[in-house]
Computed example of a mutant assay.
Amino acid sequence: MGLWASPYSLRIKVALKIKGVDYEYVEEDMIRNKSQQIVNYNPVHKKVPVLIHTGKPIVESVVILEYIDETWKGNPLLPQDSYDRAQARFWAKFIDDQLTPTIRTALMRKGEIAKRATAEAEELLKLLENEIKSGNKLFHGEGVGFMDMVGIVIAYWVPAIQQAAGKQLLMRGSYPCICSWACRLLACSVVRENLPPHDKLVSFYGDRIAAVLTKTPKL
């Protein structure tokens, strides 16, 4: 169960494709008409994605990725080395809990809130840029791995939100290593063939930004 515009849903699609697992995808309308199934299967967060396997729900995209990797052993997503796995979990948490929310605030808000978030996002992007530049193999592995699936939100969604907002934050001149990694990732067929249309995503976020700004005082 997922939403076409959700990078977190796409992570699961890509992971299942890499593993060669057949699945039935159910599109949810999370904006206008959230189904009772979502509430039943994910009563804590009431969000997608939700993976139903052997009749049991698994929720939260990173948790689902690890579940998929443990359940279907072929084509491993996470590194085999325990230290590298810990590093992958750390950077996934960094992207989901710090980088992505801060970038969204910087791009989707205005005034002092956006200004503060932009400054914070730039510092966080520098950390990721330096980590990729250092040669961290999580970002330079062969094929598409765990960090690539988590990073799809930076590679594809952030440029779409930037275009919708009419702002520039993630630029090749400032973050060449992130942008090169994003280009390599988006060139992989298993990712490229499952991405939502760029223009449709820009329009979706244009509507979201407009909705946010009408509810938020301009500081």
Score class of each variant (00 low, 15 high):
G145L: 05
G141K: 13
L170H: 06
Y156T: 07
F139C: 09
G141L: 08
T118G: 11
K133Y: 06
E142F: 06
A117E: 10
K133A: 14
F94S: 06
I154H: 11
E129Q: 08
E122C: 13
D96W: 08
E120N: 11
A165T: 04
C183S: 15
A121D: 01
E131W: 00
W91G: 02
A119P: 04
V144W: 11
L127W: 06
D148Q: 07
R109K: 15
A155Q: 04
M108A: 05
V144N: 12
T102W: 07
V144Q: 11
P176M: 08
R184L: 07
G111L: 06
I154C: 12
A117I: 01
K93H: 15
Q98V: 08
P159M: 01
E112D: 15
L138Y: 04
A155H: 05
S174P: 10
C179K: 12
G173F: 05
R172N: 12
G173H: 07
L127V: 13
L124Y: 10
P101M: 10
P176I: 02
H140A: 13
E122S: 14
G135Q: 02
E122A: 11
T102P: 06
A160K: 09
E123F: 13
F90M: 05
M108P: 10
P101G: 05
G173C: 07
E129A: 08
I95R: 09
A119C: 13
F146H: 10
K93L: 14
W181C: 00
M108C: 12
S174C: 08
L128E: 01
Y156E: 00
P159I: 01
F139K: 07
C179T: 09
C188L: 10
Q168S: 15
G151L: 08
M171G: 11
P176H: 07
K93T: 13
G173T: 06
I178W: 02
P159H: 02
Y175P: 00
A92V: 10
P101T: 06
K133V: 11
A182L: 03
A117K: 03
L128I: 02
G143S: 11
I154Y: 12
F94E: 09
L138K: 04
I178N: 01
S174V: 09
Q98L: 14
K126E: 15
Q162K: 04
T102C: 14
W157P: 02
Y156K: 11
I113S: 15
R89F: 02
E122I: 13
S174W: 09
W157M: 02
A92Q: 01
S180W: 04
L125S: 04
S134I: 05
A114V: 07
N130V: 08
G143R: 14
P101Q: 03
L170V: 13
F90S: 04
G141P: 09
C183Q: 14
D96C: 05
W157E: 00
S180K: 14
E142C: 02
T118C: 12
E131K: 08
G111Q: 07
I161R: 04
M149W: 11
L127F: 13
S134Y: 00
E120C: 12
D148H: 05
V144C: 10
A117F: 09
A165M: 02
E122V: 12
D96R: 07
Q168N: 15
